[in-house]
Design a binder for these strands. Structure first.
Lengths: 204, 204
DNA sequence: AAAAATAATTGAGTTCGTTCATTTTTGAAG
DNA sequence: CTTCAAAAATGAACGAACTCAATTATTTTT
């Protein structure tokens, strides 16, 4: 039962997401009106709000897909990490960063990050926060893997170190999206400069 | 020349700021309309916009005053730091945190932080970003002071360490204001747990 | 197959931040 | 003291996100 309805719901949800993602990239999140999205997705404004709580929650739905891919991609590095602490961290962090502008503009990231702070209780905001936690856990898992292989010192606290390193890379990502003129290369270099001394301390 | 005008400008600016600060705390930033602020400050809505670019920029003006006090307060600790790395960091960071809710609610912080990410180019947003940089520098200065006194190891990179520790405390503060149920004690404990292992590595 | 119940769609209306053409106030010059 | 130019104040009008009462589509019941 509920065959046609469910199918229509899925179709409409997809159409709204796709239309919005394209418009956000093309003319910018701020310049897109709900009316534009509704028209492009061939639904009414009222229907839009049956599918997403707010304009911002729709943006977060798009961002969440991106972060899910990043998380997936990181698994490989944790499973089979590079041979030094500095290399392993650089690879994981660089992977996160390089993926970040694949589907999203800096403006989209700025808005998304702002929303997760300001309105942390919508469905997709919750999901985003959850994904952030999983990313932090992934960094911890990498450090634990390095310790288990004898690459990192045995007497460190992988959770504390992982969280600190993750919070640093996260904050630096915020700096990056705040500044339209900052390149990915500059971001990677800045974070490497910060993380390398820590990696040295962590090394056996 | 321009005696009365300058005086009136200062008076009005102060009245708007005070009225807004009180209303924001009493009924919440989101619930306050520009009209409420204008009425409470006895100016028109149009005049409000002669003094502040946006509602958010007014909020940032209030937040900036708070951060300026925090920065001031930190100087004493850098000048005469506690005798261990862990203590020194705890005192400085705890000082920041304990001050944070003196004039501002968590909701005000959430909105302010969101705005500095989303709209980083207004006058007070620029000032806030500048203050953030100065806070990071203060943490670096503390580590440098500890190194100079022989409390921290001489072979560390104080700038890299300071930035990482600051970014961590900043990110944790964001987590704190996102969660209305999280106490200051819980925040301090969480950051201590993260920072203490680092402090141990930094210790001579 | 018709009727009743349930779910989903719709777009005009509401709210609130922001703008701007007009009016009022202030300071300087004659 | 009067006149004039510049600065500041004003509030009605605008735009865009979001709401909700009425309508339409789908599913279930008889």
């Amino acid at each position: 039962m509920t065959g046609l309805r469910q199918k229509q719901k899925a179709t409409r949800s997809r159409r709204i997401l796709q239309a919005a993602a394209q418009l956000f990239r093309e003319i910018g999140y701020g310049a897109v009106r709900i009316d534009d999205i509704a028209r492009a997705a061939e639904v009414s404004v009222g229907t839009f709000y049956n599918y997403f709580e707010t304009k911002g929650d729709l943006l977060l739905a798009i961002v969440v897909m991106e972060v899910e891919e990043v998380l997936e991609q990181g698994i490989a590095i944790v499973t089979d990490p590079p041979a030094t602490v500095a290399d392993a961290l650089s690879r994981l962090i660089g992977g996160y960063y390089d993926h970040s502008l694949h589907y999203l503009s800096k403006e989209m990231w700025r808005t998304a990050l702002a929303i997760t702070i300001e309105a942390p209780a919508t469905p997709f905001s919750n999901r985003f926060t959850e994904l952030d936690r999983l990313l932090a856990e992934q960094v911890c898992a990498l450090i634990m893997a390095l310790r288990d292989r004898g690459i990192a010192r045995p007497d460190i606290d992988p959770r504390a170190m992982g969280e600190v390193i993750f919070n640093n890379l996260n904050m630096m990502f915020i700096e990056f999206v705040k500044d339209d003129s900052m390149t990915l290369a500059a971001l990677n270099a800045a974070v490497f400069r910060q993380t390398a001394p820590l990696a040295a301390l962590l090394t056996r």
